[in-house]
């Protein structure tokens, strides 16, 4: 097969911006040199290492390309016409944009939760079992579904109505259903694209707690426009900003650090201004 992968080796340290830390626990090593949609340069010079069992948040003003960067990590951008990419994204040391890599396979190991809750128009059970069927899982589906729903803190609310349509749930429940659907197959990495932006504060709180719990098992990358959320849940935070000097609106990474350092002691003036709320 063309996708036969080389044996596992430590990622070679493109993404090392943090001092005194092991580099071999980097699961996804993202290095975007340039990213275009057609002739529009959307992102440049963004290097983000995503570490095992941690939560990495991408923050920045709207239009800075943080969702675009996230969607690069499991090749969702392949669906966009005119998408072109310079650089590499290494998942466990293998470049997922290398020739011969199947994006479908990549997405099975790097799952995704979207901004809008997007359950399928089928029962709650079938929604969660979707990934199991996708992967041709032969074992006890009911058991896996229950575990995923428990992990997504949704089991108690839906255990009596697993045959009801997923669309009948409330917005917060739908989003937790989508999380359950994403984790049921136990991917290694979970990408979350503003998972709480369509939810009320209580539902948001529950999802945040959930993320913290899930980070024991999964590696999570999250895009958020909510600074407090990044501060509350993320171990690492990257700040992206828009560069308008060359005429376009090109996003780039300004600063990446432990959340604690980034929020308490931002180095770059842009980051300082953004955290102080001087622009959005």
């Amino acid at each position: 097969m063309s996708t036969a992968m080389p044996p596992l080796r430590p990622a070679n340290g493109h993404a090392a911006t943090l001092p005194a830390e092991k580099r071999d626990d980097i699961v996804v090593d993202c290095h975007i040199r340039e990213l275009y949609y057609g002739s529009f340069k959307a992102v440049r010079d963004t290097e983000i290492p995503i570490r095992k069992n941690s939560i990495t948040a991408f923050i920045g003003p709207s239009g800075c390309g943080k969702s675009t960067v996230l969607r690069c990590l499991n090749r969702m951008n392949d669906l966009v016409r005119g998408f072109r990419f310079e650089g590499h994204v290494r998942y466990r040391g293998r470049d997922i944009y290398a020739h011969g890599i199947d994006p479908v396979a990549v997405r099975r190991f790097i799952g995704m939760v979207f901004q809008q809750p997007n359950p399928f128009a089928t029962s709650i059970f079938n929604n969660v079992a979707f990934g199991l069927r996708l992967n041709g899982f032969k074992g006890d589906r009911a058991d896996k579904v229950e575990k995923a729903l428990r992990a997504a803190a949704l089991w108690d609310e839906v255990k009596d109505k697993l045959n009801k349509s997923g669309l009948s749930l409330s917005g917060g429940q739908q989003q937790r259903l989508c999380i359950a659907r994403a984790i049921a197959t136990e991917p290694e990495v979970l990408l979350m694209d503003e998972p709480c932006s369509a939810l009320d504060p209580i539902a948001t709180r529950r999802i945040e707690e959930l993320m913290t719990e899930l980070s024991q098992k999964f590696t999570i990358a999250i895009v958020t426009h909510n600074l407090q959320q990044a501060q509350r849940v993320a171990d690492y935070t990257g700040f992206l900003y828009v560069d308008t000097t060359q005429g376009g609106r090109t996003g780039y990474l300004v600063e990446f650090n432990h959340s604690k350092h980034l929020f308490e002691d931002p180095q770059h003036p842009h980051t300082q201004q953004y955290i102080r709320g001087e622009f959005s």
């Binding site: 997405r107 799952g111 997007n118 128009a121 992967n135 989508c178």
Partner: peptide
Amino acid sequence: VPSRMKEAAIGMGATTAQ
């Protein structure tokens, strides 16, 4: 069919046929 449903399936690693 809402495009977000299609996106959800592709995001989980469904092939086109799936």
